[in-house]
Design a protein around this nucleic acid. Structure first.
Ligand code: ZN
Ligand code: ZN
Ligand code: ZN
Ligand code: ZN
Lengths: 141, 141
DNA sequence: CCTGTTCATGAGAATCATTCTCGCACGGCG
DNA sequence: CGCCGTGCGAGAATGATTCTCATGAACAGG
């Protein structure tokens, strides 16, 4: 279905490893840790060094093609990555399988800016994530 | 001024170290890392083992007396802790000094529940933090 | 107050995700 | 085809947090 692959960013070389990481992320529905991705690539016969996976993910995050989640909602103690749309959005994440839905909430955007201004804060950013158990996982237990 | 110290939770022993950690948190305005707190206690002549600081903080978080922030907004790679009120709230945090204001946003509470329900998610939780530069830090640069 | 049981402490080792080091391979370009 | 600079990978290094385990303190009962 979705295979837009605007994976071309000037200054970055296109290598087998980087393409493999992005291709894998394109197929997965939810957030996955770097180590998960590394293991999956290895299983598929696309051997990529762990350090390279981290580097590729970092580059993708910098280029805005991938979102990173550090909250404790998922993964015991590691960051999780997901191929996301480049427009501002938030996530509704399944705690047990990682399945994720991108959601937008215009009201919270304004609210964050307003409350920050009221308290004299500048340079405002916000971070909003919703965690839960998806229907499939709820049924499977 | 504020010295309510409801530090009594059944099943937990009251020790010098635990009291010291909570007392220190009561005086600080913003989020601090475990290692920061450890160093501060040491400077004050209240020597507490680092492992104990971690254990005390964990207990306080479990008891709902302290909030923990894992986002990358503050502290390079570590969790930060703060004495917070026990009612549900969110944070407006200064990226540079850690100063924090507790804020409430009823609308987002309803929004989170609704959007989760629409997608078949149960057991919903949410997490919202706002980061910025406070007036004092903005002036100081 | 005295005493035993139980839980907390702390120094250091262990864990674990992530990053760094550095020699080697390869992409892109002339 | 051959160069230059970047990307790769294996393993070491880092850094926060947790674990281990022997010792010491809290607290209920007597
Ligand atoms: Zn699920
Ligand atoms: Zn937003
Ligand atoms: Zn500030
Ligand atoms: Zn809320």
């Amino acid at each position: 279905m979705s295979r837009p692959e605007p994976a071309e960013v000037p200054g970055r070389r296109q290598t087998r490893q980087r393409s493999a990481v992005l291709a894998l992320l394109d197929e997965l529905e939810g957030f996955r840790t770097a180590q998960d991705l590394h293991a999956l690539l290895r299983e598929r016969g696309e051997p990529v060094g762990l350090a390279t996976v981290y580097r590729a993910l970092q580059a993708l995050v910098d280029d805005g093609l991938v979102d990173v989640l550090r909250s404790e909602g998922l993964a015991d103690g590691g960051a999780a990555y997901r191929r996301c749309s480049p427009v501002h959005h938030h996530h509704l994440v399944c705690r047990s399988c990682g399945r994720t839905v991108e959601v937008a909430d215009p009201p919270v955007e304004r609210w964050a800016a307003r409350v920050a201004a009221e308290h004299g804060f500048a340079d405002v950013q916000h971070q909003l994530e919703v965690f839960g158990t998806c229907a499939a996982c709820a049924a499977a237990r």
